[in-house]
Nucleic acid binder design. Structure first.
Lengths: 117, 117, 117, 117
DNA sequence: ACGTATTTATACTCAC
DNA sequence: GTGAGTATAAATACGT
């Protein structure tokens, strides 16, 4: 269930995991799947790198956002007010969708609308 | 998917439905329209009230918990560590060991941990 | 910063913590504060017990809520619809508060309202 | 706390303020009232737009990250462990050791861990 | 340094 | 059993 070496089951034991790890170490063994453990390790590294890369980008954008707030503050605007404006504008469409959704749900619950219509 | 009393409410209008919803919401008892079903409506209102009552109680307890953490913090304890302690006590030891084993496997695969450490 | 033995500082070191732990173990030492480490330990236990007790209560209530939803479902109501009703009723007051809050914030930001009025 | 152009907007009414807010919200350019300040309003709108643009980008990247986790899961990796790996790599080792030390201290104090384990 | 607010992570539920 | 949506918990960030 953990390392994609083909032996994973929902009830994979710790010993199976350690075996898989040893497999990575020794480069030896029963690797019954098309994937070798070395491949699994490389896959793991690749995923980690991709995630970390994306998180960097995300952080950069978050910093940009903070910068905009700082700039606005420097222009005399109240940051808290600005945040409220942003939040409200985000909330409004969501809430409209919510209203429509609850209405639809009720129409279905009352048998007045086909469940997949 | 009809109302629990078996009646199939016919083609009611949107506004009538909204009115029925408002009735639930505001707790106004009278909805004389032939399209609304009194029994179902009362049942619905009862369920809503019971749930809201329980959620209030739940919130009160949640606030109490926060209060205890605050008090602990005021006594010099590290809140974050406290939370981890509570969480660990909830986990059964096998499960916890399993999770740690998986984590270690990954850390070793990434060279973040000695293979026999 | 961690154990309330009077020595805690924002820069408390690991060694200080271990020392405190040893203090608990040996029952010996320099405990310059009115609190002994035994007291700290007992405090810790007391906090943990209080929190766990409250969390049990909270869980019991959460289970009650689930029970009500189940009961409603048994009566033919759509659980999802019920949840939407509850959510909407909760949302409404919050959103009204949000509206007023943003307005107040703007009044302050525009200099038309005292900041603490 | 006045608007950044120094003007002290006099006693505007609530409705005028709401109108100003709506102007920002809807992007309607004309607000001919003498009580609204065009420069400040345009600045405000520009800030809001920049922030919202950046938040969209941030959300897109967040979705990408979720996608990578999904992909990893599809390859048999344990998502939760992966997240912990990412988190651990972000922590500087000293800080991590410190946190673990505090946790261990508490665990020992509660008898959940041998004093020399 | 604090409490609060936002964001993130985990657990649970339902439908497919 | 997998995946999406929801709900709760935890962690972090922010302004005071």
């Amino acid at each position: 269930m953990t390392l994609p070496d083909g032996t994973e089951t929902p009830t994979a034991t710790l010993s199976q995991l350690k075996e898989a790890l040893d497999t990575v170490k020794d480069g030896k063994p029963e690797a019954p799947s098309p994937y070798t453990n070395g491949v699994a390790r490389d896959q793991l590294r690749a995923f980690v790198e991709r995630i970390e890369r994306l998180e960097e980008e995300k952080k950069a954008i978050a910093d940009d956002i903070k910068g905009v707030y700082s700039e606005a503050k420097g222009c005399g605007f109240d940051t808290k007010a600005l945040r409220r404006v942003i939040a409200l504008r985000k909330l409004d469409p969501d809430e409209r969708a919510e209203q429509e959704a609850i209405l639809d749900t009720y129409l279905v619950a009352l048998g007045m609308m086909p469940e997949h219509g």
